[in-house]
């Protein structure tokens, strides 16, 4: 579901309530997966300024590839990355993503751009057309995914956004692909998943910073 400006102000008000995200993280980590689904997780260092504070009910989601083959989710200090190595396992992957979102439904999901929201709707309709029973995932059509991009600029890139919050950034934002997301599919074809995972993790931690430093400030009345 697309989130409008007024809803964003409301969401900003609701975000900081008493909340412990560790059971959700534990459930997601332990979720039983098909062998075709690969999973890695990364815990941000104790003092990292990229992690989301403990009492904030927020998750950041980021997909990679076109068509999507990787899904990264950041909750508090944990980045969970799920991916497939062959597109033949697409259906299993899409269902897994839906199940993960179902587990984490108590959180507000953020993404940089509307891509993730439209992709999820795409997954849903794709599964429907393949004759899969999607009734238990109907919530996806109403799941709000909040766009972190600047409201005045729907074409803002992540590099710009990172530059905008880190004025003294001289060299790089730390991305292994130099922010060239077109490389993702080439790396996927070459089975170089490590690089894509690093790229995905970098995107997520930068988006997390954007949430804390920029988005929240702009919508908390």
């Amino acid at each position: 579901m697309e989130v409008n400006n007024i809803q964003k102000f409301n969401i900003a008000r609701k975000l900081c309530t008493k909340f412990d995200g560790s059971p959700i993280i534990k459930k997601l980590k332990g979720y039983e997966r098909d062998p075709s689904i690969k999973f890695v997780f990364y815990t941000l260092p104790q003092k990292s300024h990229f992690k989301i504070p403990k009492d904030v009910r927020v998750a950041i989601i980021d997909f990679e590839g076109s068509p999507t083959f990787m899904c990264g989710i950041l909750i508090q200090d944990t980045i969970l990355t799920y991916y497939i190595e062959e597109y033949t396992h697409k259906i299993i992957f899409y269902k897994l993503v839906f199940n993960l979102l179902k587990i984490a439904r108590d959180l507000w999901f953020f993404a940089f751009s509307d891509h993730e929201r439209t992709e999820l709707l795409g997954f849903y309709h794709y599964l429907q057309v393949q004759g899969e029973d999607v009734s238990e995932f109907a919530f996806i059509t109403e799941l709000p995914i909040i766009n972190l991009q600047k409201e005045s600029s729907q074409f803002e890139s992540l590099t710009e956004a990172v530059y905008s919050i880190q004025p003294n950034l001289v060299k790089l934002t730390g991305d292994s692909l130099f922010r060239n997301s077109k490389l993702v599919n080439k790396l996927f074809s070459a089975q170089m998943y490590e690089e894509i995972i690093k790229h995905n993790q970098n995107c997520l931690i930068n988006e997390s910073l954007l949430f804390s430093v920029r988005w929240y400030k702009n919508y908390k009345l």
Binding site: E160, Y163, S164, P167, K171, F178, R179
Partner: peptide
């Protein structure tokens, strides 16, 4: 060389985007 760079497909002056 660091004075003006465009390694990540954007010129590295936050002033341009902020």
């Amino acid at each position: 060389p660091q004075v003006i760079q465009d390694v990540e497909q954007f010129v590295n002056f936050s002033e341009l985007y902020r």
